[in-house]
Design a binder for these strands. Structure first.
Length: 637
RNA sequence: GCCAAUUUAGCUCAGUGGUAGAGCAGCUCACUCGUAAUGAGCAGGUCGCCGGUUCAAGUCCGGCAAUUGGCUCCA
């Protein structure tokens, strides 16, 4: 048979050769490192025979598919260890994930696993690695498979099998452990040299909160020791960037149980950072014809009945407040308020687009287990705006809001992925006319294409009133969060009976764009803190420069410089304590202040400053004019 | 909300049933100093909250709360 390699070369192999044979024909090293083989786009075990001509690709650790095979095999390895240590354990599913794997297990009555038990399981896994058992694939009839798991009493596998009646069923066995599994697996457990179990969590069977909660164990594994060590180091580094930790160290924000979980308090330093970002966006919006408005924190419940948010989202709102027989809601979103502003006077097509912007604080009842630092909170401020425009203007307006969103992310150098969030087939989830939806989705995708955005489509991710473009970023430990969003809405204009008079003197419905480049100030700040690891650029830093006199003789010069920089609008901290200069420098560095201005006898006499850049070190002496120029160049206008 | 863990001084953390500890921060004193932490002293606690077991509880048991890692949900 002919085997076609990725580079296009064709080689003749005997019928029923295996992936291993093919790898060996190239080199022994490759055969040793190979984890699997892609045969005509289907992943095969290396030991599986190939029975006809095929295009192949050998997978190693350097391929993502190779890593998936490696981690999925490690999930089986862990399962074998669990079965040895906890006889009677039942298994749900155990897939590989982006970084590692997990297995959901149902432990025998009365047995619980916590992180403290992980080392023992890990130890057992290492023993099984040494045993170097082959992963053996076996095709089996559905009936035999059912019989096997009935005998074992594993109702989860039986349920999975119910869904596989029409498919080919395969079992994999390594050592004493047999699992229902599609594959693919590494040749033997000996390859899975450096496993590491990471955490334990509860996970509902099949993701359904009405069903039993299983124990999920997360882990990862590497072929080489230094890779595992590097992984552990990276995790430790990431923990140091955690915004909750840096937020405390730099006194940016706090959360007080006395005020309430998920209701963050902005401390003076954090307020500076947040206001600086708000002013940055405010300026950009003024340049683009936005008008800023302010609306109250609560609104009549009737407003949210009209919008359709209540009772649809009643579960995730704070309960209504009753006053004078009227019910009010802490506002879960700003849009209905803005719609009232639009509707407050007759609008002409000549007035459109109307762009109403507000840093509007909203309150949502998030489940207690979901709260997380600044990332997931119950009270947060959206950099919200609603653009009311004609159908003809829609395209340009979408373009402009994408552009302002990109401006935000590029200013901070953040990596974002872009998702077009469209509707799925479940019509109940959405409001409004299907044809309008299709038009809006097409409009969004066309603009995205036109602007050359790299995106993926998320079916079923749309809001109930329309499709969205969502901008998604990762935090320090790799979790994904949605930040900016752009949403097209044909439903609310209808519900609120919004109108404008057209050139034809007839009434028309505007279309609304909801947009928030930062998304939520709280969440954006959480990501920004981790992005910079607290080392904010000069224009954002809560304290921009410290002035550090070497001895008391320079205190007067220090005060003079303080007044000078403060009058120029810079945020200055002057350290007149009776401490050694190295101590003052150390503390300035720890507070991540971008510049330390050191002044001693020499600087005072020559009316200069010695400049130390945070994270860089001493960059030499400068005249007052020079340092002013440096600072001016670091500000964003 | 569910599963698991955690909660001790302002911060980071020791403390496995017998008189609550350390480092840093704070305060006082001395040192007047050239680019990442000068030294000495002092002060600081309802051991998350409520209840139980015990001669005795920070420690064991139960409940509650908050936080953390996940699950579910997310306009």
């Amino acid at each position: 048979m002919n085997i076609i390699f990725p580079d296009g070369t064709v080689k003749e192999f005997p019928l029923h050769s295996t992936g291993k044979d093919i790898a060996l024909s190239i080199s022994e090293g490759l055969a040793r490192n190979a984890l699997g083989i892609i045969v005509n786009d289907v992943p095969y075990d290396l030991s599986r025979t190939i029975d006809r001509d095929a295009a192949i690709r050998i997978l190693t650790w350097n391929d993502d598919e190779g890593k998936q095979i490696f981690w999925h095999s490690t999930a089986h390895l862990m399962a074998e260890a669990l079965e040895a240590l906890y006889p009677g354990v039942k298994f749900g599913i155990g897939p590989s994930i982006e970084a590692g794997f997990y297995y959901d297990v149902d432990l025998p009555e009365g047995i619980k696993i916590s992180v403290e038990d992980l080392p023992a399981i890990e130890q057992k896994m290492k023993e099984l690695v040494k045993a170097d058992s082959m992963f053996m694939r076996r095709e089996i009839t559905w009936e035999d498979a059912m019989a096997f798991f009935k005998e074992k009493g594993d109702e989860y596998k039986l349920e999975l099998l119910e869904g596989l009646k029409e498919s080919e069923i395969t079992f994999y066995t390594q050592g004493n452990f047999t699992d229902l599994c599609r594959g693919t697996h590494v040749p033997s457990t000996g390859a899975l040299k450096y496993p590491k179990l990471l955490s334990v969590a509860g996970a509902y069977w099949r993701g359904d909160s009405s069903r039993k909660q299983l124990t999920r164990i997360y882990g990862i594994a590497f072929p080489k020791k230094d890779q595992l060590e590097e992984f552990i180091t990276l995790r430790e580094e990431a923990e140091k960037r955690d915004h909750r930790r840096i937020g405390k160290e730099l006194e940016l924000f706090m959360i007080s149980p006395m005020i309430g979980g998920g209701l963050p308090i902005w401390l003076p330093n954090g307020t500076i950072v947040r206001r600086t970002l708000e002013n940055f966006l405010r300026n950009e919006q003024v340049k683009r014809g936005y008008q800023e408005v302010i609306t109250p924190h609560i609104g009549n419940l009737q407003l949210y009945r009209t919008s359709g948010h209540y009772p649809y989202y009643a579960d995730s709102q704070f309960a209504p407040i009753t006053v004078d027989d009227e019910e009010y809601l802490l506002k879960p979103m700003n849009c209905p308020h803005h719609h009232q502003i639009y509707a407050s006077k007759p609008r002409s097509y000549r007035d459109l687009p109307v762009r109403l912007a507000e840093f509007g604080t909203v309150y949502r009842y998030e489940q207690s287990g979901e709260l997380n630092g600044l990332s997931r909170v119950r009270g947060f401020t959206q950099d919200d705006a609603h653009i009311y425009c004609t159908d003809d203007q829609l395209r340009n307006e979408i373009k402009q809001v994408i552009e302002i969103t990109q401006k935000v992310f590029s200013t901070f150098g953040m990596d974002v992925s872009t998702r077009l969030s469209f509707r799925d087939d479940n019509a109940d989830k959405y409001g409004g006319d299907l044809s309008l939806w299709e038009r809006a989705q097409k409009e969004i995708q066309d603009v995205a294409d036109e602007m050359g955005l790299e995106y993926y489509i998320g079916l079923g991710e749309a809001a109930f009133y329309g499709p969205k473009i969502d901008f998604i970023v990762r935090d320090a430990i790799g979790r994904k969060w949605q930040l900016g969003t752009v949403q097209v809405d044909y439903v609310m204009p209808e519900r609120f009976q919004l109108e404008y008079t057209g050139a034809d003197n007839a009434k028309h419905r505007p279309v609304i764009i909801h947009r928030a480049p930062f998304g939520s100030m709280e969440r954006f700040l959480s990501i920004l803190i981790e992005h910079y690891a607290g080392n904010f650029p000069f224009w954002i830093a809560p304290i921009q420069l410290s002035i550090l006199p070497i001895s008391e003789e320079q205190h007067e010069y220090a005060r003079e410089l303080t007044v000078m920089f403060e009058s120029m609008g810079y945020r200055v901290k002057t350290d007149l304590r009776n401490e050694k200069i190295s101590r003052k420098v150390a503390e300035s560095e720890q507070k991540k202040i971008p510049y330390a201005i050191v002044i001693g006898k020499r600087e005072q006499e020559m009316r200069q400053v010695s400049v130390r850049e945070h994270g860089v070190g001493n960059i030499g002496s400068k005249s007052l004019e020079e340092i002013q120029q440096v600072f001016a160049s670091l500000m964003i206008d």
